[in-house]
Computed example of a mutant assay.
Amino acid sequence: MSDIPEAIGTASEGGLFARAISRESGGSSTDADGHFAETACLNCGTELVGPHCHTCGQAAHLHRTLSAVGHDLVHGVLHLDGKLWRTLPLLAWRPGDLTRRYIAGERADFVSPMAMFLFTVFLMFAVFQAVGFTTPTDIAVPDMKQIGSVLEKEQADLKGKRADLLTRLEATKDEAEASKIRSAIDKVDQDIASIETGRSAIEGDKDGKSNLNITIGNPAGSEFLEHLNEKWRKNPGLMLYKLQSNSYKFSWLLIPLSLPFVWLLFAWRREFKAYDHAVFVTYSLSFMSLMFIALSLLAKAGVGLGWLFTIFATIAPLHIYRQLKQGYALSRWSAIWRLLVLLFAIFIVLSLFLQTLLLLGAF
Rank of each mutant, 00 (worst) to 15 (best):
I103S: 15
N218D: 15
R338W: 11
F266R: 02
K173Q: 15
A193F: 08
P260A: 08
D205Q: 09
L295T: 04
F347A: 07
H54T: 05
V141S: 09
S25V: 07
G208W: 15
M116Q: 07
E177M: 12
F347N: 08
D109C: 03
A59V: 07
E203V: 15
F309I: 12
L84D: 00
D174Q: 09
R269M: 10
W263R: 15
Q355A: 03
P317L: 09
E175Y: 01
S284L: 13
L158P: 00
H63E: 11
A184F: 00
K145W: 03
E271F: 02
A171D: 09
L358W: 10
A278H: 06
A316K: 00
C41W: 06
L16Q: 01
R23I: 06
T197V: 15
S28P: 06
H71N: 14
H35L: 15
V262T: 08
I147D: 00
Y248G: 11
F110C: 02
A267F: 15
P95L: 06
H61C: 12
P219W: 00
R269W: 01
A7K: 13
V111L: 01
Y102N: 05
R64Q: 03
G198W: 09
L16K: 01
Q323I: 06
L166R: 14
E175I: 10
H277A: 06
A20C: 04
K145P: 02
E203F: 08
R233K: 12
D276L: 01
K209V: 13
S112N: 08
F119Y: 03
A37C: 12
G26Q: 02
L350G: 00
C53D: 05
A184H: 04
I293F: 10
A37K: 15
S28K: 03
K180T: 12
L169H: 05
R168I: 02
P113I: 01
G26Y: 08
A115M: 05
I185T: 05
L257C: 07
L324D: 06
N229K: 08
T137H: 09
I320L: 12
A126V: 08
V262G: 03
A267G: 06
L342A: 04
K249P: 00
S289E: 02
S149L: 07
E271P: 09
M116R: 07
L357Y: 00
Y321G: 02
V74A: 09
A104V: 01
L62V: 04
P317W: 06
G76E: 05
S183P: 03
T99M: 12
H75F: 08
H227N: 15
V127S: 07
I192D: 04
T55E: 14
A68E: 08
G96Q: 03
W307F: 15
L359Q: 10
L48N: 05
M124Q: 11
T46Y: 10
S22E: 04
A104L: 13
E47P: 00
F266T: 09
L358F: 06
A193R: 09
G14C: 13
